Computed example of a mutant assay.
Amino acid sequence: MELLDIYLPHYHFRERHTLDIRATAAEIMAAVERYDSTQDRFVRAMTLLREMPQRLIWMLGDAPARNRPPFSLGNFTDLGTIPDKALALGLAGRFWKLDYGQETVPDAETFMRFEQPGAARLVLGFSATELGDGLTRLVTETRVQCLDAGALRQFRPYWYLIRPVSGLIRRRVLKGIKREVCSIQH
């Protein structure tokens, strides 16, 4: 995944999923850009479950953040696009914290320079490769780089806890994009 190699060539954790779709790369990447993870009931339920402890804390206190919308693809920073072929999204912070510990990274340059001790950087990428005979392979890959040993110690158990659900979510995202593409074709 070309963009991931630009934005996060070195990483500690990686998850990759693929799905072949009968459509052009351009059609698929347009569907990727339109995709809204909040429309998937399973994704919403898993996000609410992940956020439940923090939301309970907010409800018991008087925190203004308690009305914050659930985590979604909208939390990511757009890092870059190769038209009709690939896109990369980034996050930085301490993802294992109840509130995700997300840091502000407004653009790709800030993401690349982000090196805060105790934190991690994450890139989520999508790419589409035409295989011939009208078939295209859609790939989603997530890479995480822990920026120091402390972050690695904190992130590792979190990764092994969330990875199975994360994998289910990624596969649902791929299937949702396929449904979107197929519904437009017909």
Rank of each mutant, 00 (worst) to 15 (best):
A63S: 14
L19G: 07
M59F: 11
A23C: 05
Y7D: 01
R22A: 15
L19T: 04
H10I: 10
S72N: 08
R41S: 14
E51S: 12
Y7H: 04
P64W: 05
R16M: 10
A63R: 09
V43Q: 04
N67G: 15
D40L: 04
R34E: 08
N67Y: 11
R68I: 02
P70W: 05
E51D: 08
S37Y: 03
T47Y: 01
P9F: 05
P9C: 06
V43A: 08
P9T: 01
V32A: 01
T18N: 15
A65Y: 11
N75D: 15
R34T: 06
I21N: 02
Y7A: 01
S72L: 06
R41E: 15
T47M: 06
A45K: 03
A25N: 04
A30C: 06
L49F: 15
R14K: 15
Q54E: 10
Q54L: 14
E15H: 13
A65H: 08
E33N: 11
A26E: 12
L48D: 10
L8Y: 00
R41H: 13
L8E: 01
E33S: 11
H17S: 09
V43K: 00
L48I: 10
W58P: 00
D62W: 08
H10W: 08
P53I: 02
H12T: 05
F42I: 10
M52D: 05
G61Y: 05
P53H: 05
D20V: 06
A30Q: 14
M59V: 06
R22F: 08
L48C: 09
P70D: 15
F71C: 07
I28F: 03
A30H: 11
A45L: 12
E51H: 15
Q54K: 12
L73V: 13
M59T: 10
R55M: 08
A30T: 13
Q39V: 09
I57R: 13
I21H: 02
V43W: 03
A23E: 01
R68A: 09
G74I: 10
R14Y: 06
R50S: 03
L8V: 00
A30I: 05
L19N: 07
A31G: 06
E51I: 12
Y11Q: 03
D36T: 05
R41Y: 13
E27N: 08
I28C: 03
R16L: 14
R66L: 01
A31R: 05
R14M: 13
R44C: 10
L19H: 07
R66Y: 03
L8I: 00
L73E: 05
T24L: 05
Y11V: 01
R41G: 13
E27G: 04
R50K: 13
R34P: 01
D78Q: 11
P9Y: 07
E15M: 13
E51L: 12
Y7S: 03
P70A: 12
L60D: 04
T77M: 02
R50D: 00
F76V: 07
F71L: 15
S72P: 09
F42K: 03
R22H: 14
M46Q: 09
E33W: 08
R68G: 06
H10A: 12
G74Y: 07
R66P: 00
M29R: 02
R66W: 04
M46L: 12
R55D: 05
L19R: 14
L48T: 11
Q54D: 09
A45Q: 10
M29G: 03
W58A: 00
D20Y: 03
R55L: 07
M29D: 08
E33D: 14
L8Q: 00
R68N: 09
E15A: 09
A45C: 10
T24C: 07
E33Q: 14
